[in-house]
């Protein structure tokens, strides 16, 4: 059984069909990329999985759980973490605090314990901190640990957001355009990290990305979308060679 299975997902905004009868599944341990022109419904698909949008129709199953039974905040508890296209960090907190919020689903202490800061809270805090430090080491964020997000450059914020998702120790990582706005070197780093996330940490990755270099470099399978519907699916090479995909990208007649 696949880790994430989506069948016949449909979503409309007013009269516009954002996602049209879309079905795909992501296997445990793979890197699965969604590509497509702007407005193809890639981010919408992510927002459906995150339960930010309510689908008109379709089934969403993650590891045997029906995602439609859950609220948006409960999705994280299953082990699905995500990043955002336009970086949604907690701007007035430090990098460390941002990463610690990633640990939210692992918290065990109650309100009263926290108010009196019982020894258990301290022990838990040290445990969370240790987990976060591993992420910091993994992503080389040491110089920024106590810096406010508001003052960080774009590239670093992108990495912090990845780190926050990783800190939650997810089973499935949703990356919404991880390389957008990054320099060539930063994109290269991102590529290695995604590789390591899959290989070392064993986390399944589902990503939306425009950079075909990155997509073909890291992903096992690619799904091409246009107008909210599936255009092609297969290995990066297969999808890039697909005439329908070429037409969607370059326009009619180019092929």
């Amino acid at each position: 059984m696949s880790l994430l299975e989506i069948n016949n997902a449909t979503l409309k905004f007013g009269g516009v069909v954002a996602v049209n009868d879309l079905s795909f599944s992501v296997e445990e341990g793979e890197v699965y990329a969604i590509v497509g022109p702007n407005g193809a419904g890639k981010s919408t698909a992510f927002n459906l999985i995150s339960r930010f949008y309510e689908p008109f129709a379709g089934t969403f199953r993650f590891d045997g759980n029906n995602l439609l039974d859950l609220d948006a905040d409960q999705v994280a508890d299953l082990g699905i973490a995500r990043t955002f296209q336009n970086i949604e960090l907690f701007d007035h907190a430090t990098v460390l605090q941002n990463l610690l919020v990633g640990r939210h689903r692992h918290r065990k202490t109650t309100l009263l314990e926290e108010m009196f800061f019982m020894p258990r809270v301290r022990r838990e805090e040290e445990r969370h901190r240790a987990a976060v430090e591993e992420v910091i080491d993994f992503l080389d964020l040491q110089p920024y640990r106590n810096k406010m997000i508001a003052g960080l450059p774009y590239g670093v914020r992108k990495v912090v957001e990845l780190g926050r998702a990783l800190a939650s120790e997810p089973r499935l990582l949703l990356l919404d355009e991880p390389a957008s706005g990054l320099s060539v070197e930063e994109t290269q780093d991102m590529r290695w990290w995604i590789d390591d996330i899959r290989k070392q940490m064993g986390i399944t990755v589902l990503m939306v990305e425009h950079d075909m270099g990155l997509v073909s470099g890291v992903s096992d399978r690619v799904l091409a979308l246009a107008d909210g519907a599936k255009l092609a699916e297969g290995t990066p090479a297969e999808v890039q060679a697909d005439p329908a995909v070429i037409e969607a990208y370059l326009g009619a007649g180019a092929a």
Binding site: A81, F84, D91
Partner: peptide
């Protein structure tokens, strides 16, 4: 930290659980 998360970005706070 959850308070700060809600203050700065409700969307990503939700995504973090």
């Amino acid at each position: 930290r959850a308070f700060a998360a809600v203050r700065d970005s409700e969307v990503s706070a939700t995504a973090m659980g």
